[in-house]
């Protein structure tokens, strides 16, 4: 058996990061001027506005916020999320979406199999476990936010619903770039759902017609060919290497990382030095195109 060993390596400092405009750590006084509004990551203490997080100060007119580098997912209405069902309850499912409280998916907020549109009856309530049980993965959209911060989800579109065969990767929610669309059919033969909550779903591409006929709740359990599985595994390793080197995730960056990784074997991408090379190549290519 071949064993790969790397020696400890001193982490190289990135070329003197030009200190961001206004960096604060917990307890720092941001301003003593009382004319400002208190946003996220700040608190008032005897007429001084202080930071409660370590991060960068953002000002929008009179509002002051501190943006931390990483947190749990803070939902916003309209976000695409990937989540795992943790509990089946009274007319609702509870879904773990990496948020500070579990999200709620109401029975009335899902499309019934077959795309039927009608009132949910008592039979539907009894059939809930047929659709989704504990441990199932779903993609959904944030419909509302309750006053305590919990999210309410809906899957009332054919692109949302139960996720069948594929692979989930967990990254920090702040690394997922907000875009118009978070569903991507990549030209390499796999589809990626970049959930705003940092859960990324990678699956083999399926044609839309099949989904439409099943209503989004049928699971295709055909074995996935090994070439597709290799593409999925490669994408997973690419996404993880982008995430560990703090690159934003969106369709272009994932695709560039995939192309940069083509010269290596899939398993080699797990080695830290190669993962770094792939991330660096991607970063260079993105920087070249942007500027």
């Amino acid at each position: 058996m071949a064993v790969h060993i790397t020696l400890p390596e001193s982490r190289k400092k990135s070329a003197a990061p030009d200190a961001p405009k206004h960096l604060v750590t917990p307890g720092d006084v941001i301003t003593t001027d009382t004319g400002y509004m208190r946003g996220h990551g700040t608190y008032m203490d005897d007429d001084k506005l202080k930071a409660s997080l370590a991060g960068v100060v953002e000002r929008v007119n009179k509002l002051i916020c501190v943006q931390p580098l990483k947190t749990r997912y803070n939902g916003e209405i309209g976000d695409v999320v990937v989540g795992r069902v943790t509990e089946v309850g009274q007319r609702r499912w509870r879904v773990d979406v990496n948020s500070r409280l579990d999200a709620v998916l109401m029975l009335s907020a899902v499309n019934l199999p077959g795309g039927e549109l009608r009132r949910r009856s008592a039979e539907d309530e009894l059939m809930m476990r047929e659709y989704l049980v504990e441990g199932d993965l779903i993609s959904a959209e944030v419909q509302a936010i309750f006053h305590d911060g919990a999210l309410s989800l809906h899957t009332r579109s054919l692109k949302y619903g139960k996720l069948a065969q594929g692979l989930m990767v967990q990254v920090s929610p702040s690394l997922v770039k907000r875009r118009k669309t978070h569903f991507h059919n990549l030209p390499c033969g796999a589809s990626v759902i970049l959930g705003n909550n940092g859960y990324v779903w990678i699956c083999p591409t399926v044609d839309d017609e099949k989904v439409e006929s099943s209503g989004g709740y049928e699971q295709d359990l055909e074995p996935v060919p090994s070439t597709d599985r290799e593409v999925i595994a490669r994408l997973r390793n690419c996404i993880l290497s982008l995430a560990t080197h703090k690159l934003m995730l969106y369709d272009t960056s994932v695709l560039y990382a995939y192309e940069a990784s083509r010269q290596y074997q899939v398993k080699d991408l797990l080695q830290p030095d190669i993962a770094e090379k792939v991330a660096d190549d991607t970063r260079q290519r993105l920087q070249m195109e942007s500027g």
Binding site: P20, A54, M248, Q287
Partner: peptide, 19 residues
């Protein structure tokens, strides 16, 4: 500790804004 936190934050922030 504060020096460590500032170094960590500015380094990560620079990486994230670069992409």
């Amino acid at each position: 500790l504060d020096r460590h936190v500032r170094d960590h934050v500015s380094e990560s922030h620079a990486l994230m804004t670069a992409s």
